[in-house]
């Protein structure tokens, strides 16, 4: 009996290892290719480890393409959107979850209806609007419109609603202002929810492509995804450089993920449970 259970477990492990290898393989191939000479990338059979390590590929990519600016822009956009969403979505979610004022339900329904039409679906009128207010090709267009989301409001509302109502009433009795209840009582109790939303927004912002593609055109405002796409357009036969560029574009999030794995995974799981 005991032996049989062990065999079952080994079968499970083998299945999971095969799956993990398939998941890892593209990463492995990306990194290995990025360290080969272009000639070596086209060898048959392929070398599994670079013959001579071309770290200079990374320097070449950096030289040919201004990834520094792209990194900086993407970091600015990611931080601004993430902080904006955490603040504005939590404020709105708090008001909707705890306070009574006329029009509350209508406003809530309007805000979560945005979940149904993501901005890329209606990019034409948004583009036209940005054009009219002269926001095209600015940091504003990359940040402000994405500083609130139906998803964020919905998610945080679920968290706020799960806190006991007595907490709110008791704080009011003690003469606590609404803003203080929100900021000093409700926010600290919702940290898992905030972490969850923050990670979600940060990942989406770093990886965003269509929005900056439409709304910006100048080199100074290029984000990483745009930089890598135009780099690929120019060097679509030099796979070593292409893969070096890809590694550069994903590195910050991968590192962040490796350090904060638990928060990433539990945060994402929470969006499923609460949503």
């Amino acid at each position: 009996m005991k032996k049989k259970i062990q065999w079952n477990k080994i079968a499970v492990h083998i299945t999971l290892i095969i799956g993990a290898l398939i998941v890892i393989l593209p990463f492995y191939w990306m990194v290995v290719t990025s360290l080969k000479t272009n000639a070596e990338t086209m060898m048959i059979p392929p070398t599994l480890i670079p013959e001579n390590w071309q770290f200079s590929n990374y320097i070449d990519v950096m030289k040919q393409f201004d990834f520094g600016t792209a990194y900086l822009n993407t970091a600015i956009v990611t931080v601004a959107r993430t902080l904006g969403q955490l603040l504005f979505c939590s404020m709105a979610a708090f008001a909707i979850a705890t306070m009574r004022f006329p029009g509350r339900n209508v406003i809530f329904i309007m805000m979560i209806s945005v979940l149904m039409f993501p901005p890329e679906m209606f990019m034409i009128p948004v583009y036209n609007l940005m054009n009219t207010i002269n926001w095209l090709d600015t940091y504003y267009v990359l940040t402000v419109p994405i500083m609130a989301s139906g998803f964020g409001i919905f998610l945080l509302r679920q968290f706020f609603m799960s806190l006991p109502r007595d907490l709110f009433e008791a704080a009011r009795m003690d003469g606590c202002s609404y803003f203080r209840i929100y900021w000093s009582i409700y926010m600290p109790l919702t940290i898992p929810g905030l972490v969850s939303l923050g990670i979600f927004v940060a990942v989406a912002s770093w990886n965003d492509f269509l929005w900056p593609l439409i709304m910006t055109s100048s080199q100074d405002l290029q984000v990483v995804s745009i930089a890598i796409a135009s780099f690929v357009g120019e060097h679509n036969t030099n796979y070593a450089l292409m893969m070096a560029g890809s590694v550069i574009s994903i590195l910050p999030l991968v590192l962040l993920y490796l350090f904060l794995q638990r928060y990433f995974i539990e945060g994402i799981a929470l969006t499923g449970v609460k949503g």
Binding site: M110, M111, V114, F122, P145, S149
Partner: peptide, 16 residues
């Protein structure tokens, strides 16, 4: 509390 989020969603998402 609701104003910033509502303004953003209304101007940049709902009305367009």
């Amino acid at each position: 509390l609701i104003a910033p989020a509502f303004a953003i969603l209304l101007i940049f998402h709902i009305l367009p």
